[in-house]
């Protein structure tokens, strides 16, 4: 499939998508970089001119910045540990034969399809409300004082919600990888006298290394940018991450310059992760 004619049409066919994505990537980024060096506040039109690195300085020395960085990283780490460990267990379970596998699979995968604003509000009110929530009821049942989740452990609360949303994703991917494990390999290792445990240790785990890496990287990308869960549960002040802080400076304080500087910091952070991800995917890509 390689005549000049078809090559010409082929180049023409990718062009629109490439142009759109190029504009989408480059225009806002260049503008953000530009803004980040400006004194630019919507509430204060008199402020103008170059700001040098002062926006970066103010953003980084803002009293909420260390907390935001901590919250960002803690949220990513907690949710990943929880969803990968849980996902591995869940996948191993779902890989066993049992009655109603198809239905259980649907039940387990469901949280992934719930929009973030809904899961946040449902968890905050129906489950984690300190007076009427289901958890409060269960805690009372066993004689513990109900916990006021979002007031006492806001970050953990958000992490629990996000873990619930992401657990299905990692379980599904690990399960798919498990099922792609070659039947012959299983039989061969059985012939070699491998016991269940060493089979898991030497055959299954190495086979899962790549899917788990991909899960970790993809979840990192999404979790670095988690926003709706923090926004609708109103814990931005207590457990806001970098994304929330940029939103806060930009769209609530209208300090475009400083918010842009914060946005760039987030971009750098995300790029550190995505470089690894793109490498891994690129290595497996056959054209």
């Amino acid at each position: 499939m390689a005549t000049r004619h078809s090559q010409g049409i082929a180049r023409l066919a990718v062009a629109p998508a490439v142009i759109v994505l190029f504009l989408w990537m480059i225009v806002p980024l260049v503008m953000t970089i530009y803004f980040s060096f400006l004194r630019y506040n919507l509430l204060n039109p008199d402020m103008d001119g170059w700001a040098g690195f002062s926006n970066f300085y103010y953003f980084i020395t803002d009293e909420s910045f260390p907390g935001a960085v901590f919250n960002t990283l803690a949220l990513v780490a907690t949710v990943i540990v929880a969803s990968v460990a849980g996902g591995l267990g869940l996948a191993l379970l779902l890989d066993q034969p049992f009655w109603g596998r198809g239905i259980v699979r649907l039940l387990v995968i469901s949280p992934f399809f719930i929009m973030p604003t809904v899961s946040a509000l449902v968890w905050k009110n129906l489950l984690m409300n300190p007076i009427y929530g289901l958890f409060a009821f269960l805690q009372q049942l066993v004689g513990i004082t109900p916990l006021d989740w979002f007031a006492k452990v806001p970050l953990l609360s958000v992490a629990i919600i996000a873990s619930w949303q992401w657990l299905p994703f990692s379980a599904l991917i690990i399960l798919t990888a498990l099922q792609s494990l070659d039947e012959e390999q299983k039989d061969a290792s059985a012939m070699d006298g491998a016991r269940a445990l060493s089979y898991f240790r030497y055959i299954v785990l190495p086979h899962l290394a790549r899917p788990i890496t991909v899960v970790i990287l993809i979840e990192t990308i999404f979790l670095l940018n988690i926003f709706a869960e923090i926004y609708v549960t109103s814990v931005g002040g207590l457990a806001g991450n970098l994304t929330y802080l940029v939103y806060f400076q930009g769209l609530l304080n209208f300090d475009i310059g400083e918010a842009s500087a914060g946005g760039l910091i987030a971009v750098v952070l995300a790029n550190l992760v995505s470089i690894f991800l793109v490498r891994i995917i690129g290595r497996n890509l056959e054209i």
Binding site: A10, M25, V278, L285
Partner: peptide, 27 residues
């Protein structure tokens, strides 16, 4: 009709998906 640049193009497209939204939010 892949060309020599197809793989890079695909990976580049993917990398645009990894750009955090706050990087583009203000503009």
């Amino acid at each position: 009709s892949p060309s020599k640049r197809t793989k890079d193009t695909l990976l580049w497209m993917l990398s645009t998906k990894m750009m955090p939204p706050v990087g583009a939010l203000l503009p």
